[in-house]
């Protein structure tokens, strides 16, 4: 009986000591990033002759989380535990892509899926395979996109790879460069769709 009481007391003391150590440890500093920087600029009014619906961007599996990713070896990635996306990367990239696509040109890009009575003439699907900081001090964006008419006939099926060199250290600069990569992708898409006369 006395041995049992002694064991209980020992366990209680150990748990208390453990919790005390935990409370005394320093907290980790977290950095949150937004893909689209807040801006006061509004899109200018323009005339459009065709409408293209942009489907939800399909991300690679390793991008479907909140950590920023960096390539540290050819097949090795580093997920930062302190640098995190403040919002979902999929929605953020779609907003960024739509904003860039609608910045100019005569084609109106709208977000949405397949409606029963569509008001658009084609649909755009984008799949992102990679969006990361490379171990060569660059940021790269790769994947492919395709444009299909209402009958699901593929009009454009194009792979893309855009890359920019980092000029500064840190994830903040890398995020800026990644946003620029999306702008470059938007320009490629805009150019391809503009050349396409959709019936």
């Amino acid at each position: 009986m006395q041995v049992l009481n002694m064991t209980k007391k020992l366990i209680t003391v150990l748990c208390t000591a453990l919790l005390t150590f935990g409370c005394t440890s320093t907290s980790v500093g977290l950095n949150y990033y937004v893909f689209n920087a807040p801006s006061s600029a509004l899109p200018a009014a323009r005339e459009t002759n065709q409408t293209v619906a942009v489907d939800a961007i399909v991300l690679a599996d390793y991008l479907r989380q909140s950590s920023l990713v960096m390539q540290i070896d050819e097949h090795k990635l580093y997920f930062s535990s302190q640098d995190l996306w403040a919002e979902g990367l999929q929605g953020a990239m779609q907003k960024a892509l739509l904003a860039d696509l609608n910045s100019s040109g005569t084609t109106l890009f709208i977000a949405g899926g397949r409606d029963t009575q569509p008001t658009y003439q084609a649909s755009l699907s984008v799949q992102i395979d990679h969006l990361l900081v490379t171990n060569n001090s660059t940021v790269m964006l790769s994947g492919h996109y395709d444009v299909a008419d209402l009958s699901d006939n593929t009009l454009i099926n194009q792979a893309f790879f855009v890359e920019l060199a980092l000029e500064e250290d840190g994830f903040a600069h890398a995020v800026v460069k990644q946003r620029m990569l999306v702008s470059q992708l938007a320009k490629q898409i805009q150019t391809a769709v503009s050349a396409l006369v959709i019936q």
């Binding site: 453990l18 440890s25 930062s80 001090s137 980092l166 840190g170």
Partner: peptide, 27 residues
């Protein structure tokens, strides 16, 4: 993630791994 990488990091903070961040080409 922290617990996954280092389960004892809640108590032993000094044993955390190195923090990496992107480096520019110049640096």
């Amino acid at each position: 993630q922290q617990l996954n990488q280092q389960p004892n990091s809640l108590i032993f903070t000094e044993q955390r791994g190195p923090v990496l961040e992107p480096k520019a080409k110049a640096s």
